[in-house]
Design a protein around this nucleic acid. Structure first.
Lengths: 206, 206
DNA sequence: CAGAATCTTGTATGAGCATACAAAATTCTT
DNA sequence: AAGAATTTTGTATGCTCATACAAGATTCTG
């Protein structure tokens, strides 16, 4: 029908606006403080609007998490494409996990609240697992050319856990900055890899 | 007055029973699922009893967190006393952070839910910070004799973050066991410390 | 044992929230 | 512009939960 394209357009606009608003509320107040009313207020709309464009709050929520993950991943993927050496790919992954000006206590807390919810809600757990699998396989693919097979799983496990732990620490104590966190991760990587392995990564052969 | 000793006794008993029940509920359902009604049911009492023995739910909650931390710390402290070499002290700290048969997905989730809450509630944040300071200073005191001054802060930072990250991973993916986690931490420690440093730790001179 | 003190129960109240929905406002169609 | 389709609003409903409290049960005291 003729009206179809128009209707779809408005609907898509509103959905995106609401999800973006939800994202802002989420980053500021965490999952728990992300109420329907607040989302609508943040979007400058009336409280009832959510029910019109979404089946329920969960739909907004999952949309928001996907939105968030997409934002994070875009950066990593772009940098991975541009990388010429294994080391550069490593930098892309590690720094992508500490997005500039997003390594903040409120954001760390927000992320943490999702992890906590994932323990209860299987839907969240699924999203979370997807995200982790990607990080891990990215790391593994970089180490692949450089490290001994036996260390591969171990090293990417440790680095992935280290990254998470630093975020957690950011949330709990807020006593380290982004650059410091990144340099700690590289410090860990350098220790885990032998000198030869690290040298191989710096070689421009992907 | 004459009745004082008796009243105090019952009151103490009930408070402990309720806090222990709260702890059990907490480990099973996380912070969010720890409702007043569930705590009382778990303790085999009526729903109204909480208000009689506690000023509010928060009091039960903080009592429960303290109870939990005490349980964890007792084990670590006992093992630290018995340790003869620096390496043994390290083992006490690391293994104390993965209590036997407590490295479980529900428990990891429960712990995570406290971390998330600490981001919102300053009271929790205080308890959390206390706990972290202790872990960190324990680690630092072990490394103290063995590692170069410049690496000391860095290494204890990394190991503390690694431990947290492994718990987080347990909550998110549940794809590693207690022994595996511990061996990953030691693997990280070995990499971070030079051979000489590690050898010094194994020497029985505390 | 009677009466008082203490303990325990079950329920009532009210706050905060997601969701449903009727009615108002806007936009589209002809 | 009139009427239809849609979008938006504000509010009502019902749920879960913490907390308050009246009334009942138990234990203590003399």
């Amino acid at each position: 029908m003729a009206t179809h394209s128009k209707r779809t357009k408005i609907e898509d606009i509103r959905r995106v606006e609401l999800i973006a608003a939800a994202h802002r509320v989420f980053l500021e107040h965490g999952l728990h403080g992300m109420t329907s009313a607040r989302i609508c207020r943040e979007a400058g709309m009336s409280p009832g609007i959510l029910a019109y464009y979404f089946k329920g709050k969960d739909e907004v929520l999952f949309g928001m998490v996907r939105y968030n993950n997409r934002l994070l991943m875009e950066d990593v993927i772009a940098r991975l494409k541009a990388a010429r050496t294994g080391w550069e790919r490593l930098e892309a992954i590690v720094e992508g996990n500490f997005p500039a000006s997003a390594f903040t206590r409120p954001i760390a807390n927000a992320w943490l609240s999702v992890c906590a919810e994932a323990g209860v809600n299987p839907q969240y757990a699924r999203l979370q697992r997807l995200f982790y699998r990607r990080l891990r396989s990215n790391l593994a693919s970089v180490f692949d050319g450089a490290a001994a097979e036996s260390r591969l799983r171990e090293a990417s496990f440790i680095i992935a856990a280290l990254i998470d732990g630093l975020w957690l620490r950011k949330a709990a104590a807020d006593d380290l900055g982004r650059d410091e966190a990144i340099s700690l991760v590289f410090s860990g990587i350098s220790s885990l890899l032998g000198d030869g392995e690290e040298r191989r990564l710096r070689h421009p052969a992907v």
